[in-house]
């Protein structure tokens, strides 16, 4: 029973990750796209934890979800915010 619960959890996290990735490509407001990309990194970090790799999960959470998001936001602030057609 609990093995199938874990499988359901992993499957739903993977689907959420895919959804976040599609949103990151489709959104026109670049700030929303960056938040979606940070969401993908967060889901990946949780999935790494479920695959029993805590070091990789820490690295992915800190670098993917925190630092690259901040760098992207600084870059958006200095250039333009909305992707035109």
């Amino acid at each position: 029973m609990e093995e199938s619960l874990e499988q359901i959890l992993e499957l739903s996290l993977t689907l959420l990750m895919l959804g976040g990735a599609v949103c990151a490509c489709v959104f026109k407001d670049l700030l929303n796209a960056v938040i979606a990309a940070a969401f993908v990194s967060l889901m990946a970090a949780i999935l790494f934890y479920f695959l029993q790799a805590p070091d990789v999960a820490m690295a992915e959470a800190s670098i993917g979800a925190a630092l690259t998001t901040a760098i992207f936001v600084i870059a958006i602030k200095k250039t333009k915010r909305v992707e035109e057609e």
Binding site: P54, D55, M58, A59, S62, I63, A66, L67, A70
Partner: peptide, 13 residues
């Protein structure tokens, strides 16, 4: 769990 890269990134944040 952890290590040089993870700790360094936390300090940078």
């Amino acid at each position: 769990p952890g290590g040089g890269f993870q700790g360094g990134v936390i300090i940078a944040s």
